[in-house]
Amino acid sequence: MLHFLASWEVFFQTVLVNALLAFSVQIALRAGVFSLAGVGCWAIGAYTLSILNLRGVNTLVAIVAAVAIACVVSYLLSLVLVRLRGLYLGMATVAFNQMVGVAIINGGELTGGEMGLYGVNAPVTTLQLVIVVGVVCLMLWAMERGVLGRAYNIVRDDESLAESLAIDTGSLRRFAFVLSGAIGALGGALNAMLLGIASPTDADFPVIVIALTMVIVGGFHSWRGALIGAALILWLPIGIQSFGIRGMHEWWSVVYGALILGIAVYFPKGLLGGLQKLRSLVDRRAVREATP
């Protein structure tokens, strides 16, 4: 039993940390801001923490620094990219992520170049991770309710309508952008603490793909979707392998890609959205049966 828990603990920790990555993308998408810059900030967070830790800086201070730097960078980036929307914004943030990667590789001694940084010694317990992620979830939950929740809903779907309803869309979008960077950096920092390393692949294309996938599969309208998506995507390779169908585990990547494709097309709001659709279908059925 303890052995079972022990092996699942690593998985659990991974899910928690990656949930933050998913949150960083989700919170931007939820505001209608197609930004994947959270991934670049994940790398910034990982490296800031690692660099500071290797120089003996207190862990908490290092985490705060990582988040703070990401906030500043995100804010500046949001100003630079203010007029962009949709795909263009998305690709610009991908370009930003790649540039972070290039900066890391060319950072010489400071960033360890292609090799990255090793020997980060800042252990973190599962409980601490649960608390951190819990607090972030709480914050996101609060942002999905009441005035702000409704406002973000409209900013996401219909900007000019939002403006006509006295909603400062620019301010809300910037806020989402910066928060996305902050959460991404937090995740990256915790990840570096968990693994003990920071690597240039932290800003790579696959990370971007994974982050996007988690949010698409789970559903980007709510933090719950991102959490579900993170858990599911991380579990999938294990799940497929454990099913043990002959040769099946070799094809997990194909299943993975097909899953993303299928959900993106047929469940655009993710699994969570699928549940909501069900709920409104029930509502409609009830109405139809109620009206004569």
């Binding site: 996938t213 980007f220 890609g257 899953l259 494709l261 959900i263 993106a264 655009p268």
Partner: peptide, 13 residues
């Protein structure tokens, strides 16, 4: 968004 995700998935396959 769906198009980006779908093509990423397809490309991954």
């Amino acid at each position: 968004l769906s198009m980006v995700a779908a093509t990423v998935g397809f490309g991954f396959v």
